[in-house]
């Protein structure tokens, strides 16, 4: 494993921890899109179908368990916790996320590297992850004033995607057996581009030491 991949995984892990920290300690999920969280839970469930059937490394298994466990506990907090769920911006979080799921599934059935159940589900998770942040970005745009933890959460997610792209470039040149993965690369690039606008405003707000505010 190279340093970019590790750094990517760590920023991904930190993004989840920041979110759980916000929810658990402040008992608030204000500014967090339940739609995006539902999509991520689905992404992990579809992608990690091999968790008990194929062993890669202890690191791999533990991280998968953390991502699965954390995404479903975030869902539990936002839907069931009697205090946290009251802070959910239900009226603002109106993105119709179900309409993202079906096209991704159809695309995975049509464009995949191998037509098997596990491979199609894996490809579906790649497509869905690429667009899963959209409800969250729309919610941020609507709320405009973004609190620090929510801003950090989205920033860390974007950083994770960016680092994964560098990881792929590195692997492409460093590993002789590494083949081209157009599906993952294009999806990953699209996903990272979705953050570009947010990144611009986030970095400006950090530089000027002001609260993150997105344009209407």
């Amino acid at each position: 494993m190279n340093i970019f991949r590790l750094a990517g995984d760590m920023t991904h892990l930190m993004s989840v921890l920041v979110l759980l920290l916000k929810i658990h300690t402040i008992k608030s999920c204000a500014g967090i899109s339940l739609k995006t969280q539902e999509l991520y839970a689905l992404v992990f469930a579809a992608r990690y179908l091999d968790i008990f059937t194929h062993y890669y490394s202890l690191y791999n298994t533990v991280m998968k368990l953390i991502f699965l466990g954390s995404s479903f506990s975030i869902l539990w907090y936002m839907k069931r916790h009697k205090v946290v769920r009251r802070s959910y911006d239900k009226d603002q979080d109106t993105f119709r996320h179900h309409f993202l799921v079906l096209p991704c599934l159809v695309l995975a059935l049509l464009i995949n590297e191998k037509f098997t159940f596990k491979e199609v589900m894996w490809t579906f998770s790649i497509y869905l992850e690429a667009v899963a942040i959209l409800p969250q970005l729309v919610l941020l745009q609507r709320t405009r004033n973004v609190d620090n933890l929510t801003g950090q959460y989205v920033f860390l997610l974007g950083a994770y995607r960016g680092l994964y792209i560098i990881n792929w470039i590195y692997r492409y040149f460093a590993e002789p057996t590494y083949s081209t993965h157009w599906i993952t690369w294009i999806s990953g690039l699209l996903q990272t581009l979705l953050y570009a606008d947010f990144f611009y405003y986030y970095i400006n707000s950090v530089k000027n030491n002001v609260r993150l505010q997105l344009p209407a």
Partner: peptide, 10 residues
């Protein structure tokens, strides 16, 4: 299997 190289990623 060439296309398994990505499966060790998260």
């Amino acid at each position: 299997d060439a296309d398994d190289s990505l499966k060790d990623e998260l």
